[in-house]
Computed example of a mutant assay.
Amino acid sequence: MKSLGHTPDTYTWNALLNALYKANQHADALRLFESLKRDQNSQLNIQLYNTALMSCQKLGLWEKALQLLWQMGASGLLVSTPSYNLVISACEVARKPKVALQVYEHMVHQKCTPDTFTHLALIRGCIWGSLWAEVDEILENVAPDASLYNAVIQGMCLRGKFKSAQKLYMRMREIHFKPDGKTRALMLPKFS
């Protein structure tokens, strides 16, 4: 392409970053992104940043993900829910639930609306960090969602909190949410 005198544009860079990401070459995708940042700072867009954030998520590079998130905001790009979700998920992968909660608070403060994926990543991270009060707070403060209840019940069972899981399962049934197959399988021995 260069030998023919063509100049790469954001579509070219997006295609290259996505190809590296899909080939599980996440570190290479981040190196290319950093190179683009140095050379083509004005051409960086939300898609390029999000692809870099997806690589951070896969590698559990929560500090790098945070850095990119702040750079996005500083560059004037509108940071969207999917971008925040990728950073929160990177924190989840790295087992940094307290950092994920701080990112979530910043997200809400910035008037960016969390979605089910945001809450699921937060809940999973808090479960593995044994932040049970935070899990309860999330469930209490978001619109009821069956997938959130399923995630919490499954996490409680995996962490040995069977009594709490049973109580939440009963509450889930009372509000007429259907447990998924995994939740039913985990709960069946507890009620027989």
Score class of each variant (00 low, 15 high):
Lys2Met: 09
Ser3Glu: 14
Leu4Gly: 09
His6Asp: 06
Thr7Met: 08
Thr7Cys: 02
Pro8Val: 06
Asp9Gln: 06
Thr10Asp: 10
Trp13Glu: 00
Trp13Gln: 01
Leu16Thr: 13
Leu16Glu: 13
Leu17Ala: 08
Asn18Arg: 12
Ala19Ser: 15
Tyr21Arg: 14
Lys22Ala: 04
Ala23Asp: 13
Asn24Asp: 14
Gln25Glu: 14
Ala29Gln: 06
Ala29Ser: 13
Arg31Asp: 09
Leu36Ala: 05
Lys37Val: 01
Lys37Glu: 15
Asp39Ser: 15
Asn41Val: 09
Asn41Lys: 14
Gln47Phe: 12
Leu48Met: 15
Tyr49His: 07
Asn50Ser: 11
Asn50Pro: 07
Thr51Cys: 13
Thr51Ala: 08
Met54Ile: 03
Lys58Trp: 07
Leu59Asn: 08
Gly60Arg: 07
Gly60Met: 10
Glu63Lys: 14
Lys64Cys: 10
Leu66Ile: 04
Leu66Cys: 10
Gln67Ala: 06
Leu68Ile: 09
Leu68Gln: 00
Leu69Trp: 02
Trp70Phe: 07
Gln71Ser: 08
Gln71Arg: 05
Met72Leu: 03
Ala74Pro: 00
Ala74Phe: 03
Leu77Thr: 01
Leu77Phe: 03
Leu78Ser: 12
Ser80Gly: 02
Ser80Gln: 08
Pro82Gln: 04
Ser83Phe: 02
Tyr84Gln: 02
Leu86Val: 01
Leu86Thr: 02
Val87Trp: 01
Ile88Tyr: 01
Ser89Thr: 10
Ala90Gln: 03
Glu92Gln: 15
Glu92Arg: 14
Arg95Val: 05
Lys96Ala: 14
Pro97Met: 08
Lys98His: 12
Lys98Asp: 15
Val99Tyr: 02
Val99Glu: 15
Gln102Thr: 10
Val103Asn: 05
Val103Thr: 12
Val103Cys: 10
Tyr104Asp: 02
His106Glu: 12
Met107Glu: 04
Met107Trp: 01
Met107Ser: 00
Met107Cys: 04
Met107Arg: 00
Val108Met: 03
Val108Asp: 02
Gln110Lys: 13
Gln110Val: 07
Lys111Cys: 05
Lys111Pro: 00
Cys112His: 00
Cys112Leu: 01
Thr113Glu: 13
Phe117Ser: 10
Thr118Arg: 01
Thr118Cys: 02
His119Phe: 15
Ala121Val: 02
Ala121Cys: 09
Ile123Ser: 06
Arg124Ser: 14
Gly125Thr: 06
Ile127Tyr: 03
Trp128Gln: 11
Gly129Ile: 09
Ser130Cys: 09
Asp136Leu: 01
Asp136Arg: 07
Glu137Tyr: 12
Asn141Gln: 11
Ala143Gln: 15
Pro144Ser: 12
Pro144Arg: 14
Asp145Cys: 12
Ala146Gly: 08
Ser147Tyr: 03
Tyr149Phe: 15
Val152Tyr: 04
Cys157Ala: 03
Arg159Ser: 09
Gly160Phe: 03
Gly160His: 04
Lys163Val: 11
Lys163Cys: 04
Lys163Ala: 09
Ser164His: 07
Ser164Thr: 10
Lys167Ser: 13
Lys167His: 07
Lys167Trp: 05
Tyr169His: 13
Tyr169Ala: 11
Met170His: 11
Arg171Tyr: 00
Met172Arg: 08
Arg173Lys: 13
Ile175Gly: 05
His176Ser: 13
Lys178Ala: 15
Lys178Pro: 03
Asp180Val: 02
Gly181Met: 10
Lys182Pro: 00
Lys182Asp: 08
Ala185Thr: 08
Ala185Ser: 12
Leu186Val: 02
Leu188Asp: 08
Pro189Ala: 07
Lys190Trp: 07
Ser192Tyr: 04
Ser192Val: 06
